[in-house]
Design a binder for these strands. Structure first.
Length: 552
RNA sequence: GUCCCUGUAGCUCAGUGGAUAGAGCGGCUGCCUUCUAAGCAGCGGGUCGGGGGUUCGAAUCCCUCCAGGGACGCCA
């Protein structure tokens, strides 16, 4: 990328000037290149001279001038200027910019594939909700975040696996089984009461009814314990099917559905415990088994095996991450959790250290929870209490494109309000349609060109030189940088913003420049630009899991 | 009480220590005889929660206070 080449040439210029004694000795800080907000300052800028001023005991402007004198900028740069109080501004050559249009056309759908990951194996684990009920709107956020991030990493040179961790055992599954058993009994006319901490949602009644219809009253004949266990299994399998359907609606895909149970069946739990025990991180007290995380700087120790012999959720997570790192040997693991799991992060890091792995190989993305509103009124979303607005309900009414875009356009750190009424209104002024409309407009132009039998394969992109054209191209060539930024920061929310800016540049170009006209040469050049724009728009929309319609 | 996240335009939110803090929505003006007006051009709108500090330079880093959210379980 031009940015890196420019930084490198600046570094060399400073070193060269220092060798000649034109600039004083000073340690060279990292050369940061930014995009100036004002276009009159060019495409790139650096404040390097100001950062060197103190150490070199020289005014920033003088430093800037001397760097400029020794600088051999990359060939893509047409001008280097110095601006007070000590900036250096750089502008891209017009002919390089127009040439990029051909480059994008040649690269096609692989334009902006970058080799950041160098083939490293990365696992993205997300959502991983207990299969004890339908997904609600809040889960949609993690789903969209994870799937989009995985998409970006996949084109950034990483070998990506998308994984859903299925909690198919433990106390909540048992709780779920009990609740289902009660509903089952009630459905068959047997008196039974739901425990307070049970699952009160209406969907449990429907589920019980469904099971009665399919399985009859056979669970009346088995022991309660047996019935609860079997109903839990049938019920969670059914819930998981629902969850998979919800994902399909939202265009979220997983490569692996990982069962918690298998951690115990395949001996991974034992192996992980053995590793911790050898490291001296395990103690037995009060009849329970503890992970001595306090010896790793944590506030407190954590129970791994309860006094009743049952492993905790944390114990499963130890075994699960042992499996991720020691058995499956991922280079990088990304876990995406809701902020209610925030407190879990430090002990996970401590546990990795205890297992002998670099904690930095686990990146945990915490997204804030969604406050669900219905026309301003807060809606509670607890699964156990029952009043659920399901993800499916919202996706079906709002549409997957708008849903994904809304979820994506806020950083994971922001606590977002999701007003169902507002989302359902599906206003035509939605930025979602603004971006898609740009794509549809382009498709329409290309259709017209095809109808008129225009062959623009020999179009001369060097004719693209007006301000609207170059502004549009400047947006197009930004894509690889956006990809890198998302892949490094793990922040997909930059994508929708980029998409909007690109659409703006296109709509403005469209208004000012006639594409299909009497001027055959210009028509050919602009058709190429328009097609390149279509490629980039489709790419970004695709990464966000959205459709790129040809007509609207 | 301790820890984490947040506080930027009327609303929803961007903003890699740099130049005049941005976008969308909403409000107000204009613009459809030519490829899609789901569009374009423009106007108005700000104590970047408050107060200290570091720095040539702070919305951005540090401290403190205030406000909102979340977590502090042998639940997950």
């Amino acid at each position: 990328m031009v940015k890196q080449e420019l930084a490198e040439s600046l570094r060399e210029a400073v070193l060269e000037a220092q060798r000649k004694g034109v600039l004083g000795p000073a340690p060279l800080p990292e050369v940061l290149i930014e995009h100036p907000q004002s276009t009159e300052h060019g495409d790139f800028a650096t404040s390097l001279p100001m950062k060197l001023a103190r150490a070199m005991r020289m005014p920033p402007m003088a430093i800037a001038q001397r760097i400029q004198e020794h600088l051999s900028p990359p060939a893509q740069i047409s001008s280097v200027t110095v601006a007070p109080p000590g900036f250096m501004n750089f502008t891209l050559r017009d002919d390089w910019l127009s040439g990029q249009v051909q480059w994008i056309l040649d690269a096609g759908e692989s334009y902006s594939d970058i080799d950041l990951g160098k083939g490293k194996r990365v696992q993205v684990e997300f959502v991983s909700v207990n299969p004890t009920g339908p997904l609600h709107v809040g889960h949609g956020r993690g789903a969209v975040l994870g799937s989009t991030l995985a998409n970006v990493l996949a084109i950034s040179g990483f070998c990506v696996e998308r994984e859903y961790y299925v909690n198919d055992m433990g106390s909540q599954i048992n709780n779920f089984g009990r609740s289902l058993y009660v509903r089952y009994l009630q459905c068959l006319g047997v008196e039974a009461a739901l425990p307070d901490e049970g699952y009160h949602g209406k969907y449990m009644v429907d589920l019980a009814r469904e099971i009665v219809a399919r399985e009859g009253d056979r669970f009346l004949k088995t022991s309660e314990q047996e019935a609860v266990a079997q109903l839990a299994q049938i019920g969670t399998a059914r819930m998981l099917d629902d969850i998979k359907q919800d994902f399909a609606l939202l265009r979220v895909e997983f490569d692996v559905w990982f069962s918690e149970k298998t951690l115990y069946e395949d001996g991974k739990f034992e192996k992980a415990m053995e590793l911790l025990r050898k490291g001296g991180y395990i103690t037995e007290r009060e009849n329970a088994t503890w992970f001595e995380s306090s010896s790793l700087g944590q506030d407190k120790d954590n129970v791994l095996v309860r006094s009743d012999g049952q492993p905790t959720y944390f114990a499963s997570d130890v075994a699960y991450h042992y499996d991720k790192f020691s058995e499956r040997e991922f280079d990088l693991v990304i876990d995406i959790w809701g902020s209610d799991h925030q407190g879990h992060v430090p002990r996970m890091k401590a546990m990795l250290r205890a297992l002998g792995h670099d904690p930095d190989r686990l990146r945990i993305i915490i997204h804030q929870l969604i406050t669900l509103r219905r026309g301003g009124e807060i809606v509670r979303v607890s699964k156990r209490s029952g009043d659920i607005v399901t993800l499916r309900e919202v996706v079906e009414e709002v549409g997957p494109d708008a849903c994904r875009f809304v979820f994506l356009s806020r950083s994971a750190d922001s606590q977002m309000d999701f007003d169902i009424e507002l989302a359902k209104r599906q206003s035509a002024d939605n930025p979602v349609y603004y971006v898609q409309y740009a794509h549809a407009r382009i498709a329409s132009i290309i259709r017209l060109a095809e109808e008129r039998g225009i062959d623009f394969s020999e179009g001369d992109v060097s004719l693209l030189s007006t301000e609207p054209e170059l502004t549009l191209i400047r947006r197009l060539v930004l894509l690889p940088e956006i990809m890198e930024r998302v892949a490094v920061s793990l922040e997909p929310h930059h994508l929708p913003y980029y998409a909007q800016e690109l659409a703006t540049a296109f709509h403005s170009f469209y208004k000012q420049c006639r594409v299909v006209s009497e001027d055959r040469a210009m028509t050919g050049a602009r058709l190429k630009l328009v097609r390149a724009t279509k490629i980039v728009l489709a790419r970004v929309l695709g990464l966000m899991g959205m459709t790129a319609p040809d007509r609207m």
